[in-house]
Amino acid sequence: MTSCHIAEEHIQKVAIFGGTHGNELTGVFLVKHWLENGAEIQRTGLEVKPFITNPRAVKKCTRYIDCDLNRIFDLENLGKKMSEDLPYEVRRAQEINHLFGPKDSEDSYDIIFDLHNTTSNMGCTLILEDSRNNFLIQMFHYIKTSLAPLPCYVYLIEHPSLKYATTRSIAKYPVGIEVGPQPQGVLRADILDQMRKMIKHALDFIHHFNEGKEFPPCAIEVYKIIEKVDYPRDENGEIAAIIHPNLQDQDWKPLHPGDPMFLTLDGKTIPLGGDCTVYPVFVNEAAYYEKKEAFAKTTKLTLNAKSIRCCLH
């Protein structure tokens, strides 16, 4: 018999989150649709729960009410004593943790798909938090293969000092899905179709896995975050240069030392320094102006996964 890495157990509980950011409308629209008619997301033997994560922000069509829901799922915020004085999103995070967690427990949901849009030209993107997770690498390989020839990129946010504390991190297997470009507060049919297909293929993978299909060893190309880059700023902290036209919409493309990065209003080009080629992502993302992030630098690498098969009882 072929030796293989056996994944822990079959997958039982899956959640699909929309509206973690209330103005990213593809996930909101799909989740609302699936709450009314969820036939397309159901798979035999699998509990799939669509869920609106930040209903107040969705109602106002804004990213958040008090603070970013997708950055506060750490033990400090989840452990705060519940009171009306807490920011709305912290209270909501505790409610979500109660419903789908608790985080880092045996009772937490197996998989959470968190649906997002970006204003950046990132196409279909899967966000991975753990480079050693054979199950998710296999799932992402399946999704990428199923979507081809449509490109699907994998963004690895594993980093020693950049801690995200994402909404989906309460699950055993957290999956971020990011599709763009799409303006905030807008629905685009092409973007919706791409996100819908990503979810379909992900659920198909889980179904095949649960039925005992063995997935042979595989490898995927990923883009691992190195650092986030702020806009150049003046002495008052105001933005002093904008994304250069040569960099705009060039997510995932190589940016070499000396290539144009920013452009000042008086026409001066600010190039990339250093001696390493990087791959920019979230270029000129609207939501990241407040976070002082013009783009993120990534490096390209390959992740390998062992063969996996479900432990059938």
Results as ranks from 00 to 15, higher is better:
125 T>G: 08
173 Y>C: 10
80 K>Q: 14
313 H>A: 15
120 S>D: 00
119 T>F: 02
104 D>C: 12
27 G>F: 03
219 A>C: 12
270 I>E: 02
268 K>P: 00
37 N>H: 11
11 I>C: 08
217 P>R: 05
9 E>Q: 14
206 I>W: 06
90 V>K: 09
167 T>V: 11
199 I>M: 12
292 K>Q: 11
258 G>M: 07
68 D>W: 03
34 W>H: 01
154 V>A: 04
238 E>R: 10
7 A>I: 12
79 G>S: 14
295 F>I: 04
102 P>V: 10
25 L>I: 10
305 A>T: 00
256 H>P: 01
247 L>D: 05
66 D>E: 11
93 A>I: 10
73 F>S: 11
293 E>Y: 07
129 E>V: 06
300 K>F: 00
7 A>V: 12
90 V>M: 13
160 P>S: 12
269 T>W: 00
19 G>L: 00
279 Y>E: 05
61 C>H: 12
227 E>R: 01
202 A>Y: 06
307 S>K: 11
139 M>A: 01
119 T>V: 09
196 R>L: 02
42 Q>K: 11
200 K>N: 12
298 T>F: 05
285 E>Y: 02
313 H>P: 15
126 L>D: 03
200 K>S: 11
177 I>Y: 06
164 Y>L: 14
231 Y>M: 05
24 E>I: 05
31 V>F: 04
17 F>G: 06
11 I>Y: 00
55 P>N: 10
165 A>D: 13
57 A>K: 02
123 G>Q: 05
174 P>T: 15
185 G>T: 00
293 E>R: 11
259 D>L: 03
156 L>P: 05
126 L>W: 04
165 A>Q: 14
198 M>F: 04
163 K>A: 12
68 D>P: 04
141 H>T: 04
258 G>C: 08
143 I>T: 05
249 D>E: 01
78 L>W: 11
8 E>M: 15
49 K>A: 10
78 L>R: 10
25 L>E: 05
229 V>I: 08
108 S>W: 07
275 D>E: 11
127 I>Y: 12
246 N>F: 09
174 P>D: 06
199 I>S: 03
167 T>Q: 09
213 K>G: 07
207 H>F: 10
287 A>S: 14
164 Y>A: 15
18 G>K: 05
138 Q>G: 05
200 K>V: 10
94 Q>D: 10
162 L>S: 15
121 N>H: 08
223 Y>W: 01
285 E>T: 10
307 S>M: 09
298 T>N: 03
307 S>H: 08
66 D>N: 10
236 N>E: 09
246 N>A: 13
74 D>I: 09
168 R>E: 07
54 N>G: 02
3 S>Y: 09
77 N>A: 12
146 S>N: 15
40 E>K: 06
116 H>D: 06
274 G>T: 00
298 T>G: 06
84 E>W: 12
111 I>C: 09
25 L>V: 12
24 E>S: 06
267 G>I: 02
301 L>D: 06
167 T>P: 15
127 I>L: 10
226 I>E: 09
250 Q>D: 01
154 V>N: 04
13 K>V: 00
109 Y>S: 00
101 G>K: 07
281 V>A: 14
204 D>H: 03
313 H>N: 15
262 F>W: 07
303 L>P: 04
80 K>S: 13
42 Q>R: 11
84 E>T: 13
280 P>M: 01
4 C>D: 15
234 D>W: 03
115 L>R: 02
275 D>G: 08
171 A>I: 04
107 D>G: 13
21 H>T: 04
77 N>L: 12
244 H>F: 04
287 A>N: 14
213 K>F: 13
279 Y>M: 01
291 K>T: 10
258 G>D: 10
76 E>M: 12
64 Y>V: 07
216 P>L: 06
195 M>Y: 04
312 L>Q: 12
267 G>C: 05
14 V>G: 02
276 C>R: 14
48 V>P: 06
191 I>P: 00
312 L>P: 15
18 G>N: 05
164 Y>R: 15
312 L>F: 15
44 T>R: 13
238 E>A: 11
102 P>D: 08
224 K>L: 01
287 A>I: 09
203 L>T: 02
127 I>M: 09
74 D>A: 12
39 A>G: 12
288 Y>R: 14
101 G>D: 06
259 D>W: 00
160 P>Q: 12
307 S>W: 02
48 V>N: 00
122 M>P: 00
110 D>F: 03
174 P>W: 15
13 K>Q: 06
264 T>M: 08
253 K>H: 09
198 M>N: 03
89 E>Y: 01
51 F>D: 01
279 Y>R: 04
248 Q>G: 02
123 G>D: 03
232 P>Q: 05
238 E>H: 10
14 V>A: 07
34 W>D: 04
224 K>T: 05
282 F>N: 12
247 L>R: 04
92 R>M: 12
136 L>T: 03
75 L>D: 14
256 H>S: 11
161 S>P: 13
39 A>T: 12
129 E>F: 02
148 A>H: 14
239 I>Y: 01
43 R>N: 03
179 V>S: 03
12 Q>C: 06
224 K>N: 07
95 E>G: 08
280 P>K: 01
65 I>M: 11
173 Y>F: 14
138 Q>R: 05
162 L>N: 15
265 L>Y: 14
35 L>F: 07
2 T>D: 15
48 V>E: 04
23 N>R: 05
306 K>M: 11
274 G>H: 01
313 H>M: 01
156 L>W: 09
196 R>S: 06
277 T>K: 07
298 T>C: 15
121 N>K: 07
284 N>L: 01
44 T>A: 13
247 L>W: 04
86 L>C: 12
30 L>C: 03
26 T>E: 01
234 D>K: 09
194 Q>A: 12
182 Q>Y: 05
117 N>W: 03
260 P>L: 01
114 D>G: 01
191 I>L: 12
295 F>N: 00
152 C>W: 05
266 D>I: 00
50 P>G: 00
271 P>W: 04
209 F>Q: 02
302 T>M: 12
272 L>E: 00
193 D>R: 09
77 N>E: 11
273 G>A: 12
88 Y>L: 08
127 I>N: 01
273 G>L: 09
216 P>S: 07
202 A>E: 06
146 S>H: 15
300 K>L: 09
276 C>K: 15
26 T>R: 05
70 N>L: 08
247 L>C: 01
166 T>K: 11
